[in-house]
Design a protein around this nucleic acid. Structure first.
Lengths: 215, 215
DNA sequence: GACAACATACCGACTGGTTGGTATGGTGTT
DNA sequence: AACACCATACCAACCAGTCGGTATGTTGTC
């Protein structure tokens, strides 16, 4: 994804380093990734690194923010928002997540999920940035889930309404867990499996199937 | 949990180090944990460390195996196996998992889930040991789930049977994901939430409620 | 049961390579 | 010429792993 060999142009070192951080850290974790690793992957010198970031920890925080922004933009522009029915937007989100899974785990797993585990005790700043990214992304699903739930309640499809915010968080729970198992097995199949279970759960909670979602 | 101050008795250094590894690595990850950290936590010298383990990586593999054995024994002796109904054994498992959640995240989260993320690219041996632990534990749920599913199918509670092995894996997916979110938020509540969603999913898939499980 | 011979368990100072971070110098743009 | 941007050389701290040595059993022999 990132440059690698070719040296980035003038003024591009910062983003090159952030992109490299996403690639490398997802594979080997934050602490196993050295500053030199990042510089090499970004095709940038150590001077450039410390010109833009005061410390490795500051880069990690910036990488988490960068991740939030790039993935946020990706999902904001995704086609599933076009569905009229809010439930279809929810199912469309799951389909879109599945469509993003390809290649080795380091390319489709989540940066902030990986960093969270390591940063928990060693760096509150990184941990908080990761938390903001995960829970911030979950919040983008809340409105659609809430609308789908009230629709289902009005239609009589369900009798009991579960909490939309909690359901949105659960989506991230399942995906993060799927990434862990997927890395352990070194196999993307686990992620598809998990998304399938999550879709079935949503069908149950929303009292309907997802068959009408255009594939 | 482990000794800490008091020096362990003769012949106890190995288990002291393994117990210390479980505690420390769950908090700060594998690579951020130094050999000296582990020796200090175990109350053992560096010489003892390298007497028992040829390298830090070998300790990590041994710690994963140790984790498999201790947790395996814990769950094997857990009371949920006593239920007559296989579905109740499944719901009892979830209750038992929830009952284990208390204190800070480093005390209730999963060692091998934490190490998986870091070891993925850096150490295949550790990754494989983690995978064996996770998927091995999932397999202990398969029989009960399969039995509960065939029961439900026979009772007419459900019409379509989902794969028991996949469902067992999904249990671990949800728990691992819950641990990630729980560390990010530094809050055990997310885990309870996730187990609640998983229970509701099982109720849906098994076509019944879990109310009759003795609390 | 005493004693030699050996094996296992452990200690802690030391080392050589690594790593995060710095100091300084160079280059292009305004 | 001033400034942002970046490269290279370098440093001090750190860390995995080593090594000589001690202490505590264990085993066999008489």
């Amino acid at each position: 994804m990132s440059a690698g060999v070719a040296r980035p142009g003038h003024g591009q070192a910062r983003v090159a380093l952030l992109d490299a951080a996403v690639d490398v850290i997802r594979g080997q974790g934050l602490h196993a990734t050295t500053v030199d690793d990042l510089c090499a992957a970004a095709g940038v010198s150590k001077g450039a690194f410390f010109h833009h970031f005061a410390s490795k920890e500051e880069l990690a925080v910036a990488a988490a923010d960068h991740w939030s922004q790039t993935t946020g933009a990706l999902f904001a522009a995704a086609p599933y928002h076009d569905h009229q029915d809010p439930a279809n937007r929810v199912f469309g989100y799951l389909e879109y997540r599945a469509a993003l899974i390809s290649g080795p785990p380091a390319e489709y797993t989540c940066l902030v999920g990986t960093m969270t585990q390591e940063a928990f005790d060693t760096s509150p700043a990184v941990r908080d940035a990761c938390a903001a990214s995960i829970f911030g992304h979950a919040e983008t699903l809340e409105a659609d889930l809430a609308a789908a739930l009230t629709d289902a309640l009005a239609n009589g499809a369900i009798t009991e309404e579960v909490d939309a915010a909690s359901l949105a968080r659960h989506t991230q729970t399942v995906l993060q867990g799927a990434f862990v198992l997927s890395k352990a097995a070194n196999d993307p199949a686990v992620v598809f499996e998990a998304i399938g279970h999550l879709r079935r759960y949503f069908e149950c909670v929303l009292g309907r199937t997802s068959s009408e979602v255009g594939r």
